[in-house]
């Protein structure tokens, strides 16, 4: 391809579009579904229950420590499927690209998507590309939609959660949110923290033996742990109590959050899961999680109670209980 950057012509549907697809996407993601060149992917699915999930990714910057928008777009949808109890199988990819994006960037993103998908054993089976005029998008936006198969006997839903159940988080909170924040204009600090962006397929596989004991899973992305816990409290109509001292947060993330007036419990994660389990099996689930590279810091952080239904309480260092509220509005750095 001669051009160094995305031109409007790459979205024309003509020869240049074809070249873009062949030389970048098909080259990176090659599989029999893409090769068939049909208007959609024809999939033979095994019998059973199917989970389907969709997510759009509009992150700035598109490359960040620990990942990039491509990797993120694969992990995000895979992790949603894992949270549904599904084994992720197939993903579709739709891209909206801003005119002028360097082709080298697009190649890097496509390669990163291929690598992440291969790691998780999923195939990128159909896609779409649109090009918009400069200023109409911010580099590149990606949507992925995925489907996965739910093995028999798995039913992860908030309604399954019971009083006394334990809550596990699979690692430190806020790493992704903080690493992205450090890249933003107007915030000149450098942090050794990388995004935790990772596909959590291993959690699904390794926890399969505990399917009867796991009630529900959620990935605490936007809005962070606090938001997930509040959603679950409302949906299960139970009270949640978590212990501040047991929630894993790296000292670096805590320090940066203190400086910026932010709270790690409201910061986004892209490689973590919140798992609700039967109390008698929580220790075994935790031990299994510790055998997964991404889950070394997993911890039991609290439990479900009958009251106060629909609310989340947190036990502070002083031993007092207070409300852990849902995020209102945007979580921005503050000074006062």
């Amino acid at each position: 391809m001669k051009a160094e950057r995305i031109l409007m012509a790459h979205g024309s549907g003509g020869l240049m579009s074809q070249q873009l697809i062949d030389e970048i996407f098909k080259a990176a993601w090659s599989n029999e579904y893409l090769e068939s060149m049909l208007d959609g992917a024809l999939l033979d699915l095994p019998a059973g229950r199917i989970a389907m999930s969709t997510d759009s990714f509009v992150i700035t910057p598109i490359f960040f420590p620990g990942g990039d928008i491509g990797k993120l777009s694969i992990c995000g949808t895979i992790n949603d499927l894992v949270a549904c109890g599904a084994r992720p199988l197939y993903l579709s990819v739709a891209m909206i690209i801003e005119e002028g994006l360097p082709l080298a960037d697009l190649r890097r993103i496509a390669a990163s998507m291929a690598q992440t998908a291969a790691l998780a054993g999923v195939k990128l089976v159909t896609g779409d590309t649109k090009v918009v005029e400069k200023g109409s998008a911010d580099g590149i936006f990606i949507n992925t939609t995925g489907i996965g198969l739910i093995p028999a006997g798995i039913d992860y839903r908030p309604q399954q959660i019971r009083e006394g159940d334990h809550i596990i988080v699979t690692g430190t909170m806020g790493d992704h949110g903080l690493s992205i924040l450090a890249q933003r204009e107007g915030l000149r600090f450098s942090t050794p923290v990388s995004s935790d962006c990772a596909p959590l397929y291993a959690i699904g596989r390794k926890l399969a033996p505990y399917k009867a004991d796991i009630r529900c899973m959620r990935d605490p992305t936007r809005g962070g742990l606090a938001t997930v816990l509040n959603e679950i409290a409302v949906q299960s109509n139970l009270g949640i109590i978590v212990r501040d001292k047991d929630i894993p947060v790296s000292p670096v993330v805590r320090g940066a959050c203190d400086m910026l007036g932010m709270d790690p419990l409201y910061m986004a994660n892209e490689g973590k899961m919140v798992i609700f389990t039967a109390p008698e099996k929580s220790a075994a689930v935790l031990e299994t999680l510790h055998s997964i590279a991404e889950c070394q810091a997993a911890a039991i952080i609290g439990e479900l109670r009958a009251q106060p239904a629909g609310l989340v309480l947190i036990t502070t260092e002083l031993g007092a209980e207070r409300i852990l509220a849902t995020l209102e509005g945007e979580h921005v750095p503050r000074i006062c």
Binding site: A182, P192, A256, M259
Partner: peptide, 8 residues
């Protein structure tokens, strides 16, 4: 240094 983060 702020808990491992660096700021000017």
């Amino acid at each position: 240094d702020v808990d491992g983060n660096q700021v000017d």
